[in-house]
Simulated scan of single mutants.
Amino acid sequence: MNIIDLTHTISENMPVYPGTDGPKLDVASTYEKNGFKETLLTMFSHTGTHMDSPAHLFSKRTTLDSFSAEQFVGKGLVIDCSDLKEGEKITIKYIEAVKEKADKAQFILFHTGWDKYWGTSSYFGEYPYITEEVAEYLLGSSKKGVGLDVIGIDPISDENLTIHKKLLAKSDIVIIENLTCLDKVGDDLFTFCALPLKFKNSDGAPVRAIAILDDNKQNFNLI
């Protein structure tokens, strides 16, 4: 079994969505004074590698804490879109090229390669993004979730959050943003886990996202 971490580390100097305060990690207790170390974490719910719930945009929709834990584990598929240039769209042709596997997957993860810009101003540039047709496929095939290695599922210029709204308005799909290392997973189905911090009425939360690879496919018995 091979486990690949798909999660960026939270730190005080990490990239955050423009206009959002960065996280603070204050040492509240020390070995010298208290005999142990404890850290006070202060951060927004959509910090780093994180998950959006339907309640992120709609007040009466599903919060992360009300989901069963089963929602956050399933068959994943990474789709390689790293050939795209700045601002280009992830069209349905990327789904159609791997349609048989995509139909079986419960999570579709788009690898754009944009995580190479993590920590630079370019990360907030014109990254590739999915079209409404791709969003319709995700909804029509009842996926548990969709993920990308960029800061948002909508282009940075779309203040209306068109794709977010299309996905979250009526479906219980979740969105995982700021993934990394998707290029290490390969192009076969695998077990994907993205477990959000569980707090009451959570509109979103940081996740520890991992890929579990097993050549014998025994990992699918867990799903």
Rank of each mutant, 00 (worst) to 15 (best):
M1Y: 11
L64D: 00
K200S: 07
F58M: 03
I151R: 04
T120M: 11
F199E: 08
K99H: 10
Y129Q: 07
K89D: 09
T47L: 00
I156W: 09
E32I: 10
N2A: 08
F67W: 07
P196N: 11
N201G: 02
V27N: 01
Y123V: 00
Y31N: 14
K184P: 02
A194K: 05
G35K: 07
E132D: 12
F36N: 12
F190A: 05
C81G: 14
K99N: 09
A135M: 03
I108K: 08
L84I: 09
G22I: 02
G140L: 12
K85Y: 10
S59A: 14
V73Y: 12
K217Q: 06
S66Q: 12
P23L: 03
K144D: 14
V185R: 06
N201T: 01
E88A: 13
L138D: 02
L40Y: 13
A28H: 13
K104Y: 08
A105Q: 12
C81I: 11
T63Q: 09
T42E: 10
I151P: 06
S29R: 15
N13A: 06
K165R: 14
K165V: 01
I4L: 11
I4V: 09
L168C: 03
G147Y: 11
L197F: 08
V207Y: 04
S121V: 01
L195C: 04
S29C: 13
T180G: 00
E126N: 15
F124K: 02
K75Q: 15
F67M: 08
S45H: 14
L179W: 01
F67H: 10
I163C: 04
T7C: 02
M1F: 10
L6C: 10
A55G: 07
D158P: 11
K184W: 04
L213K: 13
W114M: 02
S68E: 15
D158Y: 10
V174M: 02
D158L: 12
T91F: 05
A205V: 01
G48F: 02
G145M: 09
E136V: 12
S45D: 11
E96A: 08
S82R: 12
L6F: 09
K24T: 14
T39G: 04
Y127I: 05
H8Y: 04
S121P: 09
G119W: 01
D103K: 14
H56T: 15
K170Y: 13
L109G: 12
F190P: 03
P15L: 08
N219T: 15
V174Q: 03
G19C: 12
D115R: 00
F220N: 02
K104E: 15
M51K: 01
E86P: 07
S202Y: 00
N160H: 10
P155V: 04
I92E: 09
L182K: 04
C181R: 10
I130M: 03
T49L: 06
D187I: 05
D26K: 14
L222N: 14
L179F: 04
Q218T: 12
L109F: 14
L148D: 06
F67L: 07
S68L: 13
A209K: 02
V78A: 08
G204F: 00
D52W: 07
S11G: 07
V146N: 01
K198F: 00
H111K: 14
W118D: 06
T162K: 10
E132Y: 03
I175W: 06
Y117R: 04
L197N: 03
L168Q: 03
D154P: 13
L25W: 08
T180R: 07
I210K: 11
F110E: 05
G48L: 00
L40E: 14
V73H: 10
G76E: 08
A205F: 02
I4A: 01
N221T: 11
